[in-house]
Each structure stands twice: as structure tokens, then as C-alpha cells.
Design a protein around this nucleic acid. Structure first.
Length: 858
RNA sequence: GCGGGCGUGGCGGAAUUGGUAGACGCGCUGGACUCAAAAUCCAGUUCUGGCAACAGAGUGUCGGUUCGACUCCGACCGCCCGCACCA
């Protein structure tokens, strides 16, 4: 039996698509536009299965939409700046540019082998001079529009390597290379003013109706708008006041302490005189800068000795603690603690033996007996123990407390956001240089337009502490563009999130000599369907949304939301393997024995099988897509990626699953290309002997064809790729059992084959083209229209109605579709099972759901 | 710690969104073909009891709403993603 020869077929059709320029997009087109984009890859070296999954999904959408008559833009590029290139330079002495472009060449070749319908003429890498040149222009425009500015902020400092570390380079509070305890350090850095759009970014979420709810919810919580009050506490024996932010001014009478951040200016001032406090601040600084590390640390504080005067009672004062869970970046960096109604405050109060006075009691609970144990009460209720607030609801008390604070000059209502401005400075080499010069006389001076781009120098040295740009005197020292006196370049480069915040805009006019060609951008944008990992649900997507608004504000685009549709796909997972020494092993290094145990293939020694995790190089639980494509072909790999697992869930890699996909590819080939049953010639009219609504096998198969078109179409519209594959397989099974050889069957077989080929086209484009040719077509399947279902053949004339007695299934019956309710009732009551259950008495109730179910309640 | 999500046969999953739980595939079992194997084809396959017809149980756990719950509500358990310098 012949096998489908994927190697020749895939090469042949990839060449044909390229020759006919099938996938290059042009704005000059009468069809409606459709921009589908998958998150572009970081060129890490080789593509991994996650890429195959992501890009296959995008390709199915692109090919499907093309078939449905859209002018599709489907571009690809490279998110090419970032840490790994520098690590390669440090560890192996490889030039970051060489390393990156080498990786891109490899990965481009690998992606091309997948047969993706991409417009490669638009390809670029973010490390291309042409790209970062335009990004530098955007930075300067942001600077001029006050959307970029400088301020001090904290970094992780490795005191041994004298280097700023990324959060992921801090492991258990220590530098990953040096092992030294890291410290927080303050540096002057560049920021983008994301908070200028806090409200806009929040409110526009409501209009993103093709985004997953969970992503919108995560963004909403991240922006974290909260209404509350700023309260000014007098400090005993001092003239300055402590400004505190709270969302619960109603609980002021339950206050038992104030707490300020270890980085609060007041803490730092007091620490100069107070060694205990200084020691505490130093300890907090060793936690690093990540919020996760700070919040998971045990709650701790040091009494500063200050006393804060209660705004509603001059004779009442509260201790002021410096506490490690108070974040300097949120609110005012200071809080008042009400332990009865906030869990963190409660834990802190229990630890330092501070009073816990409930001031809100749930409705209907006796205030006298309402006490707080291990859990703070955060629900609604009425105020108690609160003097003039007693008896008010929480909402009323909030308003009243705010009114009194305002009247007394002790505070104001205010809105606070969790969202912070975006720090974009990186003390690294492999990124987009920030195009400014520092002059002793003129301050910060933008690099003039005609001196752009500020090019990354290639002759840099790695291996010494700090940023290589800092150690490159010829690059760093330049005359001031304003006054001509000696000055120096900014040596910080931009966060790589900046690069990925506008690449989708650049794809509209990738070769323009300015950031954006307005005509191209207004034609293609917004991205109609964006596809990428859920891990980007917050940062990348929020930064891209901000950046689009910022570009709109300064006139580059006429658009606020960049992505009108979003789909987040799950990861690709595989079990992990370790040998006796605990070393990670590749799946190709292990063998499964007949008894199910797993051993090292080369040595026969036992192997520990770990749970399935996201494929990662470090754990070696990876399967190389190139091997799979070489063994089974791209279509098999693509089909496996789309089968079985819903695209938003994690996919478990399985060799058996790939084999299953491979078998189906061959089954289709045999059935259609090597059919030994009669198939009508293309274009033959329907034979008069065929009644499409009849009960012959041919008619039933024909109806299965139209149902499949209908189902696959709606599945693909809803990202139900796994369901679409199941429907295609069902149709294949239905056609396979049609063994009649008459004229009607031959004609139906032709309809079925043509339909199958067109339905699989988006998923298995090479096999699709090959079969399309076998069916006698001279044209490309890539340019063939999507099939249309005949609505009259989609629905059957009869339906199966389930019959329940007291909610339990007792049988089924066939009824004409849309039968009158009276007919259904009498048919049900005539059923023996029902008659027996009813036993002569009329049923208490008879629930009839048309065409679906009847429930007899006795 | 905080925010978000997920949980269905031996396995991946389906279920028209409150109406026949287990489509489709993998695996397994039996059969056909073959000297044999592979490939292919056919049949069976949620669990328990039964030769069978059939009966009972069943969608992470416990409880609730409903004629009816995988689906809605509450509590809990487990796992995953994010936490602002990984991309």
C-alpha cells in the first residue's frame, strides 16, 4: 500500500505558493481586510512546539479567512533584543548580533517548513537598525509630549558583579551568577507615563468584546482603580504630616497603628538616627524589587517611635511602624491599620500585640457580641464603636468620614490606581539605545533627528561588570548637540517590551522611512485577531494598548485599541525525566519498557518520571519540531496541534497522538487519491435519481457533507479547532462507509471529496493542495473559496426525543421535527415505560422541551 | 501573599450554553487479511452486578437551587498562569 509522500508534496506546494505570491498582502484590494497576527517569537535558537501550536492556529485562521473572501495580512518578525543574547556573549564569547541573526536564519527556515501562509516580504527584527531607528524617533516624540520622563527608581543590585539584575536573575535573594545577597539601589531612570491613560485603558476594556473575559478582568485588577481618601495624620512633636491612602475611611475608629514603607522618605530620615530601623530597612532591601517577594515575606515591622494623631480625636494617638508589606509605589507609601477589617493588618496587629476593635458588624448581628478571631471581617454591615458614625452603613460612613476629614482640613476623597508608570531603562547592551545626551550645562538633550539612529556599537567587551556601553568611551563621549561642549550619551537601553509594543503597527508599512505610513496603518489596523500565550495577558498587552494610545495622541495612528480580537492559547507540555543523579533527560534519551517502567535508553538505568510541565530547555522535556516535521511532515504536526485539545488549554505532547494524526493524513490520501470506487467527473450535475432528502446511503452521505460544512465553519469561527477536526473525521468515516457504485453515489462521492479537501485546507494545506490537484483542479486550493452548506440539508426531518420519568432517562422516541406539543405529549404517555410509571394516574407535571426532551413527573 | 483560570472514562477531550454525559481520537480487547509481522479493515470498550434483557452509580470534594445541573450558587481540595527588569 502506498504511503503519502509528504516530503515531495510539501516542498512542491510551498514552492508553488511562493511562486504565485499567494500570501503577500496589498492595501489596494476590494475585498474586506483581515489582519491576523500571532505574537512574534524571541529568536532563542530553534522553534519549539509552542511556536508550532501558536503559528498553526494563526495560519488556520488566515487560510480560513482568505477562503471566505478576505484580504488577509499575516506577517512575521522577530522580537530580537533581550537578555539571552547577552548571556551567550558573556558565557560563550559570541557577538549578540551574530548570535541573534544566526538564530533568526535557523528559525525562519524551520517556520517555512511548516507551510505557514505568511507574508515574508514584511519580515523584520526589532534589532534591525531600520526598526530601532524609528523607535528612537517615537521615544523622542514621547519625550516632547511629556509621555516620557526621568525619575529615580529601584533596581536589584548585585554588589559582587556590580550589575543590575533582572528579577528572574535573583534567586532566593541572591544573584544567579555571583550568589551574593542582592540589594535594592536607586537609579535615575526613564519612564513612560502609562498612568496618563489609566482611566482610558480601564474603560476601553468594556468595548473589547472579542477579548477573553479573564484577560479583561486581570487587566482591570492590574490597573486597580480604587476610590478612597487621602488622610493627613499630624505627627506628635513634629510639624510635618503623614499622608496616608485608604479605601476604608469608614473604619478610622478601628485604627490601631499607622505603617509606612521601608522606602518612605520618613523612614529613611529616621533610620539615620535609629540603628534598629536602619537595620530593618537594609533587611527589607535585600528582598529585591519584585512584589511577589515582598508580599510573600512574613509581615514584619519596626516601631519608629513616632505617634500619629487621630484625625477625629486630638487626644488619641497611634504608633507608627515601618512595615515590610507597605509598598512605596502604591497610594502614598503609608497606611493606617484597621486590624478588625483587613487581614494583613490583623496579622500584623496579632504579631505586635496591637488592639483589634471591630467597627463594622454584619447586619442583624449584636454589636456587643461581635468579635474578631483569626479572620478580619471585610463584608458589608453597619458601623459600631465609631461615635458619630455608629449605625451608618459602610457606604454612608465612608461619605460621612470623608466629609468630616475635608471640613477639618485633614483629608480629601481621591482616586488611586495600582497601575504605575512604566520603567523602560535597562542597564544593558542588547537593546534599543535611548537617544539622548547628558550635558553638564544643558542637562538632558535629545539626539537631533538628523543624527539618528543612535547605533549600537559592535566593538564592545563583555565579561566585565556593568553595561558594555558604559565601557566604550568612543561611543559614550560625544559633544553636546546643543552647546557642543563635552557630554556623554545615555547608556541605558529600552526594555524589550517597548519593541513589542508597536511591531504590529510597523507590519503595516515595514519599510517606511518613518515609523508609520498613515494610509497603510489606517487600512490594516486594528489587528482583527491576535493570538498568543496567556502569560502575556497583562504586561505585553497592556503596554501595547498604552503605546497605541500614546502614538495616537502624538498623531502617528488614528486608533486607540490595537487588537479587536484576542485569543490566548495554552502551553505545550511533556513529562519530565531525571536519571539517578537527578540530571534532566531528553525524551529521546529514555525508553519505556513493556512493564511500563522507564529507563535510560543507553544505560538501561532507571529513570524517574516527573509530572508533565510546560516544555522548557532547562528541564529538557522538549520535542524538536524539526524532527517531527522530518519524520511525519508538516501537515501531521499541524493536525496534531489542532486535534483533541482545545486551543486555550495546555496541550500534552504524545507520540501516540502524532501517530494518530499521521494515520489520518494517510487515510485521507488513500481514500481520495487512490479511491477504487467510482467518482463522478468534476462539474457533473446532480443525477436526477438522487433525492437529497431521501433515505438512500448516498443521500445520507450528502446530508453528512452539508452538516460537516456547517459545523466545521462555525467551529473555526469560534476557535474550536479540536471540534473541527472531530467533525472532519466524522465526515471521513461517513464517506468511507458509502460503498454503493451507482451514479448517485459517484456524484455524492465527488461532492464529499471536494468538501473534505476544502475543509482540511486551513489545517493541512499541503495535503489539501495535493488532493485538490488529484481531483482534477488546475487552480490552487489556497485561492479556492470556502464551501457553502445548503441549509435545507443541514437539518434532519426527524428528531430523537429523550423521555425522562422524574428526571431519569427511561427511553427515546423518534418524532417529526417541530411536532406539535399535543402530539408529543400523547406519544410520550403511550410509551410502555411511561404508562407503567404513571400507573393510570395523570402525571403531576409534563415538561416538554421542543425537539429535545420530555420529562414526566409523577 | 495578591489577582486570574482550570478540574469529565485507562488517556486527550465532546456535550447546540440548564435538557439523552462520554461525540471524535488515543490506548486496550477480539476478529479479518498475512507463512509471519507491520500497515489496513471490522467489532467491542465509563464503572459495578448480570449470559443477557436490564438495574444501579457516575463529570475533583461537600452542600444548595431546579421537573431536570458537567453547566448556576456557596464552601473546600488540587493544579496552572501573572505579579511590573524572562520573553
Amino acid at each position: 500500500m502506498s504511503r503519502y509522500s509528504f516530503k515531495d508534496v510539501e516542498a512542491k506546494w510551498q514552492a508553488a505558493w511562493e511562486e504565485h505570491r499567494c500570501f503577500s498582502a496589498d492595501e489596494d484590494d476590494r475585498r474586506p481586510k483581515y489582519y491576523v497576527l500571532e505574537m512574534f517569537p524571541y529568536p532563542s535558537g530553534r522553534i519549539h512546539m509552542g511556536h508550532v501550536r501558536n503559528y498553526t492556529m494563526g495560519d488556520v485562521v488566515a487560510r480560513f479567512m482568505r477562503a471566505r473572501g478576505f484580504n488577509v495580512l499575516h506577517p512575521m518578525g522577530w522580537d530580537a533584543f533581550g537578555l539571552p543574547a547577552e548571556n551567550a556573549a558573556i558565557e560563550r564569547g559570541i557577538d549578540p548580533a551574530e548570535w541573534t541573526y544566526g538564530n533568526i536564519d535557523t528559525m525562519r527556515r524551520q517556520l517555512k517548513a511548516l507551510g505557514l501562509s505568511l507574508d515574508w516580504s514584511r519580515e523584520f527584527a526589532t534589532c534591525d537598525q531600520a526598526y530601532y531607528h524609528q523607535q528612537q524617533r517615537l521615544f523622542l516624540a514621547f519625550l516632547a509630549a511629556d509621555l516620557a520622563y526621568r525619575k529615580e527608581s529601584w533596581v536589584n543590585w548585585d554588589p559582587v558583579d556590580h550589575t543590575v539584575l533582572a528579577n528572574e536573575q535573583v534567586v532566593d535573594g541572591r544573584g544567579w551568577r555571583s550568589g551574593a545577597l542582592i540589594e535594592r539601589r536607586k537609579l535615575s531612570q526613564w519612564f513612560f507615563r502609562t498612568t496618563a491613560f489609566s482611566d482610558a485603558l480601564l474603560e476601553a476594556l468594556g468595548e473589547l468584546d472579542r477579548w477573553p473575559d479573564r484577560v479583561k478582568l486581570m487587566q482591570q485588577n492590574w490597573i486597580g482603580r480604587s476610590e478612597g481618601a487621602r488622610i493627613l495624620f499630624r505627627l506628635k512633636g513634629r510639624d510635618d504630616r503623614l499622608e496616608v491612602f485608604t479605601t476604608r475611611p469608614d473604619t478610622l475608629f478601628g485604627a490601631s497603628f499607622c505603617a509606612i514603607s521601608p522606602n518612605h522618605p520618613l523612614t529613611l530620615a529616621l533610620a539615620e538616627e535609629n540603628p534598629d530601623l536602619a537595620d530593618f530597612v537594609a533587611r527589607c532591601n535585600r528582598l529585591g524589587t519584585s512584589e511577589e517577594a515582598i508580599e510573600t515575606a512574613e509581615k514584619e515591622g519596626v516601631d519608629t517611635g513616632l505617634r500619629a494623631v487621630h484625625p477625629f480625636d486630638p487626644d488619641w494617638d497611634l504608633p507608627v511602624y515601618a512595615a515590610n508589606f507597605v509598598l512605596m509605589d502604591y497610594g502614598t507609601g503609608a497606611i493606617f491599620g484597621c486590624p478588625a477589617h483587613d487581614q494583613r493588618d490583623l496579622e500584623f496587629a496579632r504579631k505586635y500585640d496591637l488592639s483589634v476593635v471591630p467597627v463594622v458588624a454584619p447586619e442583624g448581628v449584636d454589636p456587643a457580641s461581635f468579635g474578631i478571631g483569626e479572620e478580619a471581617f471585610t463584608g458589608d454591615g453597619r458601623l459600631i464603636n465609631s461615635r458619630f458614625l455608629d449605625g451608618l452603613t459602610v457606604a454612608e460612613a465612608k461619605a460621612e468620614a470623608a466629609r468630616r476629614l475635608h471640613a477639618g482640613g485633614d483629608g480629601e476623597t481621591t482616586v488611586s490606581y495600582r497601575l504605575r508608570d512604566w520603567g523602560i531603562s535597562r542597564q544593558r547592551y542588547w537593546g534599543c539605545p535611548i537617544p539622548v545626551v547628558h550635558c553638564r550645562e544643558c542637562g538632558v538633550v535629545p539626539v537631533p533627528e538628523d543624527a539618528l539612529p543612535v547605533v549600537l556599537p559592535r566593538d564592545v567587551r563583555f565579561g566585565e561588570p556593568g553595561n558594555p556601553l558604559d565601557h566604550h568611551p568612543e561611543w559614550k563621549h560625544v559633544p553636546c548637540p546643543a552647546c557642543g561642549r563635552p557630554a556623554f550619551r545615555e547608556t541605558d537601553t529600552m526594555d524589550t517590551f517597548v519593541d513589542s509594543s508597536w511591531y504590529f503597527i510597523r507590519f503595516c508599512s515595514p519599510h517606511a522611512g518613518r515609523p508609520v505610513d498613515p494610509a497603510a496603518a489606517s487600512y490594516w489596523l486594528p489587528v482583527d485577531q491576535y493570538i498568543g500565550g496567556i502569560e502575556h495577558a497583562i504586561l505585553h498587552l497592556l503596554y501595547a494598548r498604552f503605546f497605541t494610545r500614546a502614538m495616537a495622541k502624538i498623531g502617528y495612528v488614528d486608533l486607540e485599541e490595537p487588537f479587536s480580537g484576542l485569543f490566548t492559547q495554552g502551553m505545550v507540555c511533556h513529562e519530565t525525566y531525571r536519571d539517578e543523579a537527578g540530571k534532566w533527560l531528553f525524551p529521546t534519551e529514555v525508553a519505556r519498557q513493556d512493564d511500563g517502567s522507564v529507563v535510560h535508553a543507553a544505560t538501561g538505568r532507571p529513570v524517574t518520571v516527573g509530572r508533565s510541565e510546560s516544555m522548557s530547555k532547562s528541564k529538557r522535556n522538549v520535542v524538536d519540531p524539526e524532527t517531527i516535521v522530518a519524520t511525519y511532515g508538516a501537515d501531521t504536526a499541524r493536525l496534531f496541534m489542532m486535534s483533541d485539545t482545545p486551543p486555550d488549554r495546555d496541550l500534552e505532547w504524545s507520540d501516540a497522538g502524532v501517530e494518530g494524526a499521521w494515520r489520518f493524513v494517510n487515510r485521507l490520501w488513500r481514500m481520495i487519491a487512490e479511491s477504487d470506487l467510482p467518482v463522478a467527473a468534476a462539474g457533473t450535475p446532480a443525477p436526477s435519481g438522487l433525492d437529497p432528502r431521501g433515505s438512500t446511503p448516498a443521500a445520507e452521505t450528502l446530508r453528512a457533507v452539508h452538516k460537516a460544512i456547517n459545523d466545521v465553519t462555525s467551529d473555526l469561527e469560534r476557535f474550536g479547532f479540536n471540534r473541527a477536526v472531530a467533525r472532519v473525521r466524522e465526515l471521513t468515516n461517513a464517506v468511507a462507509v458509502l460503498s454503493d457504485t451507482d451514479e448517485a453515489a459517484a456524484w455524492v462521492r465527488r461532492q464529499a471529496f471536494e468538501t473534505l479537501v476544502r475543509l482540511i485546507g486551513p489545517m493541512m494545506p499541503h495535503l489539501g493542495e495535493a488532493l485538490w490537484e488529484q481531483l482534477g483542479h488546475q487552480t490552487l486550493l489556497a485561492s479556492a473559496p470556502w464551501p457553502e452548506a445548503d441549509p435545507r440539508l443541514v437539518m434532519d426531518d426527524t428528531v430523537t426525543i429523550a423521555v425522562q420519568v422524574n428526571g431519569k432517562l427511561r427511553g427515546t422516541m423518534e418524532m417529526p421535527r417541530d411536532a406539535a406539543e399535543g402530539e408529543v405529549r400523547s406519544a410520550v404517555l403511550a410509551l410502555p415505560v411511561v404508562a407503567e410509571a404513571v400507573a393510570g394516574r395523570p402525571p403531576r407535571r409534563l415538561v416538554v422541551v421542543p425537539n429535545r426532551i420530555v420529562n414526566v413527573v409523577v
